[in-house]
C-alpha cells in the first residue's frame, strides 16, 4: 500500500485559529501540514515547498489572502503549482469578496466557524476532486491591483489555454472544430491513467494524469483527421502538460528522500525528454512522423505507468474519511 502525501498550508493571522487549522490538517491521513501567520511567511512556504492545498483567511495584514491567491493562480511560486485547490476560510462572506474569489477559481469558500470534522471532509474532498483551472497566464492577466470585481469577459476565456481541464467535458476549449469534440467523447483514451493509481505524490499524479489526457486528445484529433488548427492546438497543450510534468517533478525531487523512486522516475523523465522535444517541433503534416512519435509516447507511458513507479493506492478508506 502506498499512501499519497499531501502538503497542506494553512494561513491565518490569528494564532488560535491558525493552530486550530494546523491541528485539523495534520489529522487528515496522508497530509503533512504547514502553517503561516501572515501572507509573507505563507508566500515563502509556497515558494519553497510543493504545496498541494491552500487554506487561507482573507483579512490579514501584509499580503492579504486574496493577494496570496492571485499569486498562486498566476504561477508566481517556484515550488507550488498554480492549479492547486484553494479554500478560503473567512468570517465574512461579502459579495465583492466572493466575486473576486470566483474570478480566481477558488475551490471553496468556508465561513467561520467550522468544526474540525467538517473541515477534514472538505480537505479530503478537494484533494480528490479536480476543478477546471485556467492557465497561469489567464490569472496573470486579471487586474493585479485587485480592484476588478468580476471575472474576465467570456471572449477572453475562449482563447485562454487551460492546462488542467475537466476530463469529461470541455465546453469552450475548441471552438474551431465541434465535430472533433463529439468524436473525442466517443473514443477511448489513447493513454490511460489507472483508477486509484498513485506515485505517492499528489502533484505528480495530477501531472501524469494531465499528460495522459492531453496526449490522448492530441492523438484523437490527429487520427480523427480534424482541422490542422485543432490538431496544432492539442499538440501545444500536450507540450505544456509535458513541460509542467518536468517542472513539478524537478521541484519535488529536491526535497524528497525516496531515492529509489526518484532514481527510476528520473530515468523515465530522461527518456521522455527527447520525445517531448520532438512533440514540440513535429510537423503535423508529416503523418508518419507523428504516428511514430505517438507510438513511442505510448510505449513510454506503458513502461512508466507501472510498478514500482506507480502503485495501486489502497488507502481510499483513509482518504475518503
Amino acid at each position: 500500500m502506498l499512501l499519497k502525501n499531501f502538503n497542506v498550508l494553512v494561513v491565518d493571522d490569528v494564532v488560535l485559529m491558525c493552530d486550530f487549522l494546523y491541528g485539523v490538517a495534520k489529522k487528515v491521513p496522508g497530509c503533512y501540514a504547514f502553517k503561516a501567520l501572515d501572507g509573507k511567511t505563507a508566500a515563502e512556504t509556497l515558494e519553497n515547498e510543493a504545496i498541494d492545498l491552500l487554506i487561507t483567511d482573507i483579512e490579514m495584514k501584509g499580503p492579504t489572502g486574496l493577494e496570496l491567491i492571485y499569486r498562486v493562480r498566476s504561477g508566481s511560486f517556484a515550488s507550488t503549482s498554480h492549479d492547486i485547490p484553494i479554500i478560503i476560510f473567512s468570517g465574512n462572506a461579502y459579495l465583492e469578496l466572493i466575486q473576486q474569489s470566483i474570478s480566481y477559481d477558488v475551490n471553496d469558500f468556508l465561513a467561520k466557524p467550522i468544526t474540525a470534522d467538517q473541515l477534514i471532509r472538505k480537505i479530503q474532498h478537494h484533494l480528490q476532486t479536480e476543478k477546471q483551472i485556467k492557465s497561469a497566464a489567464h490569472y496573470l492577466a486579471l487586474n493585479s491591483d485587485f480592484s476588478a470585481k468580476t471575472a474576465v469577459p467570456d471572449e477572453n476565456r475562449k482563447v485562454s489555454v487551460a492546462i488542467v481541464r475537466e476530463l469529461s467535458h470541455k465546453p469552450e476549449a475548441e471552438p474551431v472544430d465541434t465535430d472533433a469534440s463529439s468524436k473525442k467523447a466517443d473514443e477511448k483514451d489513447f493513454l490511460f491513467w489507472p483508477e486509484h493509481a498513485t506515485t505517492g505524490y499528489f502533484q505528480i499524479d495530477r501531472r501524469l494524469r494531465n499528460f495522459a489526457f492531453n496526449i490522448s486528445c492530441f492523438h484523437n484529433v490527429f487520427v480523427g483527421n480534424c482541422k490542422p488548427v485543432a490538431i496544432e492546438s492539442e499538440r501545444k497543450r500536450a507540450c505544456e502538460a509535458c513541460d509542467y510534468l518536468f517542472h513539478i517533478a524537478k521541484n519535488i525531487q529536491h526535497k524528497e528522500r525516496r531515492h529509489q523512486f526518484w532514481l527510476l522516475f528520473h530515468q523515465r523523465l530522461e527518456k521522455l525528454k527527447p520525445l517531448a522535444a520532438e512533440l514540440n517541433s513535429v510537423n503535423i503534416k508529416h503523418h508518419s512522423q507523428v504516428l511514430v512519435l505517438l507510438k513511442r509516447l505510448s510505449y513510454w507511458w506503458m513502461q512508466t505507468c507501472n510498478r514500482p513507479i506507480i502503485q495501486k493506492n489502497d488507502d481510499d478508506g483513509a482518504d475518503h474519511g
Binding site: 493571522d13 490569528v14 488560535l16 485559529m17 486550530f20 483579512e59 468570517g91 467561520k112 466557524p113
Partner: peptide, 8 residues
C-alpha cells in the same frame, strides 16, 4: 479576528 476566536 476576535470574533473568529470567540466562535472557536
Amino acid at each position: 479576528s476576535l470574533k473568529s476566536m470567540c466562535g472557536l
